[in-house]
Amino acid sequence: MRSWVTLLCALIVVVTVPGLAGHASAQASDLRFPQKVEAGTAFSVSTTGSGSATLYIIGPGDTIRRVVHLGESISFGPDDLHNAGHYVAFLVSGSSTQNAQFEVTASHQAATLSFLAKPSRLPVNLPNGVSGVAYVFDIFRNLILQPQQISFELSDSSGRAQIRSATSRDGVAWVKMNSAAKAGPAQFQAEVASVRNKRVIQQVPGDPCSIRMTAHGLGQKDKARVALETEPVRDCNGNPVPDGTIVTFTETYQGGQSMVDVPLKRGVAKTELPSHNGAVISVASGVVMGNEIRWSGGL
């Protein structure tokens, strides 16, 4: 009776937890794979015994099944295993199975860079405004985890360049850089060994600085209206503010108000408003205020 109960328990344990059966067989390993293999390199594995067997190599990156002759070495060419990762191997001959595990590592030679440059557009003169992140891959698109020296270069439209160097860690390196004072497209480049990747960053003018406008009557053309025009609008670094930027003219007079949002065209904003003697006319763009005029030429 006691032996029957013991057998039953053992059976239940084995049926319920199939992994344990696997563990038991996995420990009986005679297959000798190298612990690490570089992706894309040839290598061979020796076997013992005689007769034929089936070799399985399984990993998330590659799957191989091959009939081999025991007692001979098994050769792998450069194209057989090129995805880095952890692999398990089974050598099945009749009822016996030999197990092994090994790693395929990335090649040390960088072949491609995934370069994330952000933002693609930012105002001039912004400290640490540009970020660059580079992931380094080998020719088989494996992430190279060994440290690599990566050079980052941001050059503005006048050719002035900022250069930073960073060492990759676990396959990634990053930098932050300042945007230039001069507006225009900037080239942002990451380079490792002789592999380069380039992005374009648009450095755009900042907020308008000291907006100034003038007002004049339209004379005989229309005495009831006043013409308003700004001087060319620039940011605080002297860059012309892009056309299309909205400039708001507001005219306040006794008991009323007129206003208009005008886009800059060819660097200036101009419009006409009803003419009111004693009206105060102001100009602004976004949250930046310009000058004020007290109009005394109205009706």
């Binding site: 563990h23 197990n99 595990q101």
Partner: peptide
């Protein structure tokens, strides 16, 4: 993790693996 391999539905074997993954 455990990885179990089947060939045309027949179990080839199971191995227990401990390793490090890098994921982005």
């Amino acid at each position: 993790y455990d990885v179990e391999v089947r060939d045309h539905g027949k179990t080839v074997g199971t191995q227990h693996v401990r390793t490090r993954y890098v994921a982005v």
